[in-house]
Design a protein around this nucleic acid. Sequence first.
DNA 1: TGCCAGGCAGACA
DNA 2: TGTCTGCATGGC
Length: 292
Amino acid sequence: MKTIDLSNWTYIKDGADKIDLDKTFDCGQCFRWIKIDEHTWQGAIQDNIYLISEDIVSGQKILKTTASITEWNDIIKLYLDLDTDYTINVPSNDTFAKSAVKYGNGIRILQQDPWETLISFIISQRNNIPKIKTTISKLCDSFGDTLSIKIIDLNGETKVKTWHSFPTADKLAELDVSDLNGIGLGYRDEYILGAAKAVKHCKINLEKLRGTNVSGEYAIDNLMQLNGVGPKVANCVALFGLHKLDMFPIDVWIQRIIDRYYSGSLDPKVYGDKSGVMQQYMFYYIKHSSGR
DNA sequence: TGCCAGGCAGACA
DNA sequence: TGTCTGCATGGC
């Protein structure tokens, strides 16, 4: 059983100024990270639970984590994408994009599990973010493996908490539509089962699509072979699950921006090979600022 | 109570 | 090829 000792944090200075945890975990790219206090987020990476927190020490921003320094360097730093340069050259007359970059600064595009991302964004269609989170949580509680974590608090008292992993493709592929009643998937239930069977039977290989030698366009063509996966969901999976940072999902919010600020037409290529980062800045900006 | 949500598939012209 | 419509569910 994994133990989290809240009196034993690992302190990280390197890269701390590159990330804003609130923006990163609350910008709509992931749905299972939970804010447990003013500065701390809890989530799972590769079925291990971690806490990550922000703090100020001697006037300098630092990160604190319950992970070991080895886990940080080998797993979490990569997951948070802290080694990637997010510099974007914005055209000088593109005032909306400039504002979005400033407002969204600190968002990192997480290197999430492709399978979880695929199912999460199939669920996302015609749903709002609170509903997406509720539905995914029910799916995990019903069909994920139960993980137990021992938490030692600051008083030395031990509590055991349970957590459910994201259900595997093999697990979901065994199910019938009726098994998904009560999850709240609505008409998406058959899309989920179809995707699970496609992955189980190797009709689509998400790990292969994740390869750096595979283009975003090729990945999207493959993803759209799945019933229930259209251009928007495929772009989100490519960006958030396959880490194709040049993909630019166009949802109702981005389309609203394009209509309002770009006279109905915007070529994401103007933002270079990090246009997906720009897309997320714009999405966060329009949803959270008074500019909406 | 009614509106709407990080869309999609299928029908139709 | 482009446009239109129905779709399950629940948060607000």
